[in-house]
Simulated assay, not measured.
Amino acid sequence: MSGTSRQHWPLGETQALLNLWAEDGVQRQMEGVCRNEEVIQYMVDQLSKMGIQRTTVQIREKLKKLRQQYKAVKRDETKTFPFFDLMDSVLGDKGGLHMLDADQTIGFRKRRSESDDPTQGFVSVMAECHRRWLEKEEELRREEMQQEAQLRREEMEQELILRREEGEREERLRHKEMEARSKDTETLSACLMQTLMAKDPPGNC
């Protein structure tokens, strides 16, 4: 994967990053620290376990951008931001561990207490969150594909209508042209007959 910091973050990856960022231990380490390489590297490692490959630069810049978006919504409530509630639960009152919902938080704490590996339960919850967001993204992609297919069908139908109307116009023009030619032929025939009759009047021996 390219090390560029300007790489697109799907919703599922952003959610997984914020779930890591919102964890109590991570917040304690990040408080008052502008460039904490250890905690950023921890996020890199945990995301990697979920199949999300990111660099420390990408994570730092993504978190910076998310904070800017959060502050913008704080200043202007007419704006929207899909991760506002999660970030506000951390930045608004420093309320501790914040996951997607209460059930996930309880399950996370339970698995943390029962596991010999202090990171195992956390990784399991993150993987589950990632899986759910991937499913949501897949559902959104299916809806987009269906909408695109519908638009293509409508465009094809409109094109067929235009072609049919154009064909009908051309047919009417051909019909009028044939009628005009037929009249011209009749007129020419009448003129020829008159000319012949003038040269050779009936009854002339």
Rank of each mutant, 00 (worst) to 15 (best):
Gly203Ser: 15
Ala102Asp: 11
Asp85Pro: 00
Arg111Gly: 01
Leu97Gln: 02
Leu17Phe: 10
Glu186Pro: 00
Pro10Asn: 09
Leu63Phe: 08
Gly92Asn: 01
Asp45Tyr: 07
Val125Asn: 07
Gln104Arg: 02
Arg35Thr: 04
Gln58Asn: 10
Lys79His: 04
Pro10Ile: 10
Ser182Leu: 11
Gly95Ser: 15
Val125Gly: 09
Thr55Gln: 07
Leu151Arg: 14
Glu139Val: 06
Glu171Ser: 10
Glu154Ala: 13
Ala180Met: 08
Asp45Arg: 10
Val123Asp: 15
Arg132Gln: 14
Gln15Leu: 12
Asp117Gln: 05
Ala149Lys: 15
Glu186Ala: 03
Glu139Gln: 14
Arg174Thr: 01
Gly25Met: 05
Gln69His: 13
Arg142Gln: 13
Ile161Gln: 15
Glu23Phe: 04
Glu38Ala: 14
Phe108Ala: 01
Arg75Gln: 14
Glu135Thr: 15
Glu23Thr: 10
Arg35Asp: 04
Asp101Val: 01
Leu20Lys: 01
Leu162Lys: 15
Leu140His: 12
Glu114Thr: 04
Met1Cys: 07
Glu31Pro: 00
Leu188Glu: 02
Leu160Tyr: 03
Leu173Glu: 14
Gly12Pro: 00
Arg35Phe: 10
Ala180Asp: 01
Arg35Asn: 05
Asp45Gln: 12
His175Ser: 11
Phe122His: 10
Leu17Ile: 10
Arg109Thr: 03
Gln27Ala: 03
Glu179Tyr: 00
Met156Phe: 02
Glu135Val: 15
Gly32Met: 08
Glu154Val: 09
Gly92Gln: 02
Ala16Asp: 03
Glu114Gly: 01
Ser89Ala: 12
Cys205Asp: 05
Glu154Tyr: 03
Phe81Arg: 05
Ala102Cys: 05
Met30Gln: 08
Gly3Lys: 08
Lys94Glu: 12
Gln15Lys: 09
Ala72Tyr: 07
Lys94Cys: 13
Thr4Phe: 05
Asp103Phe: 02
Gln53Pro: 03
Leu160His: 06
Lys110Glu: 12
Tyr42Val: 03
Thr119Gln: 07
Arg60Cys: 14
Ala16Tyr: 01
Leu18Trp: 07
Cys191Asp: 07
Val33Arg: 09
